[in-house]
Design a binder for these strands. Structure first.
Lengths: 344, 344
DNA sequence: TTGAAAGCGCTACCAA
DNA sequence: TTGGTAGCGCTTTCAA
């Protein structure tokens, strides 16, 4: 435990302590109860106007700020919605989604907190979250098991919502089915007459949560046809891409689903440098529909992802919080549609 | 205020309340004090092994999780380091930095919390942060004034650190001087013999915090020379770039600093589509040194940014927390160096 | 209209 | 080695 020294050093000018509602009460010449009534605009109680003014002035003079922990301790609950902070760099798509969600939740009076839980896994993470007694927990990705959900609920969390590939017992689920992304891409390539399809699988750790299902999706799309699927491990580096491109013709592929637009750009560049003609020799398709892809030549075909609207998710959370006994909802929320452009 | 109904609905199976340390004590047949000693491994007190076991078993059986708010209320402080969650989509550079910082701070026993404060501004935001009684607050960008800092400090925050263009009275400052980024780029282009230099200024709101200083930096680099600087407002859209490119030759520019690599790619593509030869007719340089730039043809020159290491910042925070009376430190932390490639 | 006081869950002091 | 208990800051019931 970190030792925090008391502010006894003579260097600090005026280590006077943090003002409490009692200080405000004293200065205003009223009781703490009155202070609370005034500052919270308690409607059940009428306080005379002069008193209100005195309290407000005292609070302002002292720079009084209420203590959230004390308040929620007393209240027995907070309106905190907790999300683990993403451990991997996250694209503009997801950033936008988070922002929208925060906005929508704050309109409903909730407070969104992203909690950095790097290094904690599974139930340890769940326990750490539970210590904060959030009213709801939103967990992107996998990693939270049924035990974690149970733990949270026993600690008073009224709604647990997962955003990930699969639903978890006891939790609401927003199924982001990345398998469908792969399926989309695979079906598209097959429809375009491609038969030997490569699928880039990023070597970066943490991305397998998405890349595995995307690969599986392509496999499913090609299942029972005369097409084949080859997985292509690839690190997000120029040389790795160059190596892959050098061997390209030996692989005998006529199409590739490159995991996402960024990997697609990386690979496409390497292929072009190697003289592979796109889309004639090899069709390329990415995913995420980044601006980036429109700027490539040939323009990159992609799979457009439709994330749930922040407002919808906020409403789901609110509903779940108000009715914690209800049976968990499960929604498929990842709309995947092909945006055909020039590269496929 | 959102009304949270008591779990009285018959639908919820067992709305038994959240176990407290008193419950654990009761089940283990010991006092709450003993429970606290055991679960916190208090070294000043020796508890017999059988008792320890009983307590641990009881805690596990009940699924007991301590209540962070109660603990920090009692302790008088928390080890929470608060950051406002970024409101704009943030690049991989910054994501990496945040992660590193979180990791480093958690090694020092701090807990990093990103607090969503969309819609709150200036002192309102500061007040909202202060309610959580964080031990330290890290504020990227501008937007926090001296009053906000004072407010936080009066509420017990022991360290306020800003990461932004300018230092704020009373707070430690990590000066991210984007002016130097522009200066770098401008000096580079001038050295390459360019004289009529355009500077892309994104029209997206929220980016002016960075774009303004970058523009100023270019101006400073060219000040007192025979070079000229023209600002080029540009939205991050294909058509906007196409319009700008269509007028390009009329502008009579021989170089452009495109704010960052993404805008550089957008503009470069539009220019190439317009038949403008790069770098012969117009030199292009971006910033951020994204992978992206290396994949363009010609390869994009860029300004590489060196953010402070998360570990260093974590140590600054720790130092500041332990010695809150000390005079605020100010560090310039944004290393900017040109990476010349083929586009300039 | 205002005040006194209980108590949220926890830790740490003091006593046994 | 263990237990009793005060009190962190706040809200809210009950009395005045």
């Amino acid at each position: 435990m970190v030792q925090i020294p008391e502010p006894s050093a003579p260097s600090s000018p005026a280590p006077r302590s943090v003002p409490t509602s009692a200080d405000v009460a004293r200065l205003a010449g009223v009781s703490r109860a009155t202070v609370s009534y005034v500052l919270n605009n308690t409607s059940a109680v009428r306080i005379s106007e002069p008193t209100r003014r005195r309290v407000h002035e005292a609070a302002k003079e002292l720079g009084y700020v209420p203590h959230a922990a004390a308040r929620s301790l007393r209240a027995g609950h907070s309106l905190m919605v907790l999300m683990p902070a993403p451990a991997i760099p996250v694209g503009p798509l997801y950033s936008r989604f988070i922002n929208e969600l925060q906005w929508a939740l704050s309109r409903l009076d909730y407070t969104v907190v992203q909690y950095g839980t790097i290094g904690l896994h599974g139930d340890d993470a769940a326990r750490a979250w539970a210590e904060l007694r959030p009213v709801a927990v939103l967990v992107p990705g996998s990693g939270l098991g049924p035990e974690g959900v149970a733990l949270l609920k026993r600690s008073g969390t009224r709604a647990v919502v997962t955003l990930g590939p699969e639903s978890v017992e006891g939790a609401h689920a927003l199924l982001m089915d990345h398998e469908s992304v792969g399926h989309c891409a695979g079906a598209h390539l097959y429809a375009r007459g491609r038969r030997r399809i490569g699928v880039v699988v990023p070597e970066e750790p943490g991305l397998d949560v998405f890349s595995r299902p995307r690969l599986d999706g392509v496999r499913r799309a090609l299942h029972g046809t005369d097409g084949t699927v080859t997985d292509l491990p690839l690190a997000y580096e120029e040389q790795a891409a160059a190596r892959l491109a050098a061997d390209w013709r030996d692989l005998g592929l006529d199409a590739v689903f490159a995991y996402n637009d960024e990997y697609a750009m990386l690979l496409m560049r390497a292929l072009q440098d190697e003289g592979v003609r796109i889309p004639e020799e090899t069709a390329v398709i990415g995913a995420d529909d980044l601006m980036l892809g429109r700027l490539l030549r040939p323009r990159l075909s992609t799979v457009h992802l439709e994330l749930p609207s922040g407002r919808d998710l906020a409403e789901l959370v609110d509903r779940a919080v108000r009715n914690p006994g209800a049976v968990p909802e499960t929604h498929r929320v990842l709309g995947a549609t092909v945006v055909p452009r020039e590269s496929s």
